[in-house]
Design a protein around this nucleic acid. Structure first.
Lengths: 232, 232
DNA sequence: ATAACTTATAGTACATTTGACTACAAGCTA
DNA sequence: TAGCTTGTAGTCAAATGTACTATAAGTTAT
């Protein structure tokens, strides 16, 4: 029965969470997968996912599941979409809510746990076969991310606070999977007035040092108020 | 228990659907609500919603529920977001998947049914108190809709199948709340190649009759495949 | 029938933006 | 000092956006 009190560990068996954790490393987009240690899909790599508990908000649930399986905690998860085809899961009907996040892998140490025997970053080009409809979820996530990154300055999270224009460009080239023209990219970004030039230059590079910039969130918020839309 | 076969009428009791059906009438946005005929919220107006069945896809479920309660059938529903706060529903834990659509109210005759004693369009400015977290769902939907209308050609749903360019322009002027230049608007739309010129002209107007156009969804889908983005 | 009016549709002229380039500057390394 | 790599500025044609003007095709009033 579906009651609210005294059921802290009871799960809702028709409802699960799956997490798409995208990482950016060496100019490639990665995805965090876990290896199942039990169940029908034992041995397979899959999106970190699990069951929602009765007394747990869905975003909390996503964070708990992710932490239990991979050791990754305290990240900003956003809801992607809910997948509910009748046949998406074997033997019983399970509807899953997909969350996603975009993070810097270096910031996290992976600790596989709970039902996961392993947790690992995979390049998008080297993702193995995934169980259930996880491939479809991943595709939806990639598509969404590519769209999002062009319309909101979320890419800046993946860089150090102070970065060069080339670093930023390479980030976008990796996510959008296309080459961009250097002078044009630079001009476009500069005209938006979202980047604040630091007084510093790059250090320890074996070539001319580039200026360092910071993303100016204050200005961004102000521009948004006025109807500005970030476009790349 | 959660089984798949032979349970056509069994519902998943932790999971519901709520529908946000927006209508556009007299330059105002309306929302379709139903009056509950039973349960804790008897007598209140609320978003059309109900329970998902075990052997039913979630979008099918949304359409069935909407049809049962309001008589509105066969409309294009899109997923908005899933709401799952622990306390959003009284007495038991219920997570709800919200769907939305934008339609022309004149095209539908409302037939309240099932657990709904009435179904009615409300101006957004005159929406009564809603039960559960329906106000929050509605707010989320409105915000999303205003953004969406500029980036996807959903506005076309609000016009007759065959419409003039001026009708389209006036629709957008109302939604975006700004005047647009006629020749330029016309040129912009035409260049997108999304409008198919009918062989017909406007009838019974006391001035030169304008050509009628149809929105060409096939072409739109093809363009989208190639990376085209609608922007107004 | 014709002038006056309304809306449709075409065109024009200028500014801005984009995209593909070239050129040169600055710092490191051999 | 030459040669390499990357940073930064500039050029130019094409495409696009913006503010107009002009004309066409009907309706209605006189």
């Amino acid at each position: 029965m579906n009651k609210k009190v005294g059921q802290d560990d009871v799960i809702i068996d028709a409802l699960s969470i799956d997490c798409l954790i995208f990482g950016f490393k060496k100019n490639e987009l990665d995805i965090l997968l876990v290896q199942h240690g039990e169940g029908i899909s034992k041995g397979m790599w899959a999106l970190p996912g699990g069951w929602i508990k009765y007394n747990e908000g869905i975003k909390d649930s996503a964070n708990r599941i992710l932490n239990d399986l991979t050791g990754v905690s305290n990240i900003y998860l956003e809801q992607l979409k809910t997948f509910g085809s009748v046949d998406r899961y074997p033997n019983k009907r399970v509807i899953t809510i997909a969350y996603y996040a975009l993070v810097k892998p270096e910031n996290y140490v992976l600790h596989p746990g709970f039902t996961a025997t392993d947790a690992k970053w995979f390049k998008l080009s080297e993702v193995p076969d995934l169980p259930y409809d996880h491939s479809r979820i991943l595709e939806t996530g990639i598509k969404f991310l590519k769209h999002k990154v062009r319309h909101e300055p979320i890419g800046f999270n993946l860089l150090p606070k102070k970065f060069t224009l080339l670093q930023l460009q390479e980030l976008y080239e990796a996510i959008l999977d296309q080459k961009l023209d250097k002078p044009n990219f630079r001009r476009k970004l500069m005209k938006m007035d979202l980047l604040h030039e630091c007084e510093e230059k790059q250090q320890d590079v074996s070539h001319r040092a580039a200026s360092l910039y910071q993303f100016d969130k204050k200005t961004y918020d102000e521009l948004i108020e006025k109807g500005f839309t970030f476009e790349l």
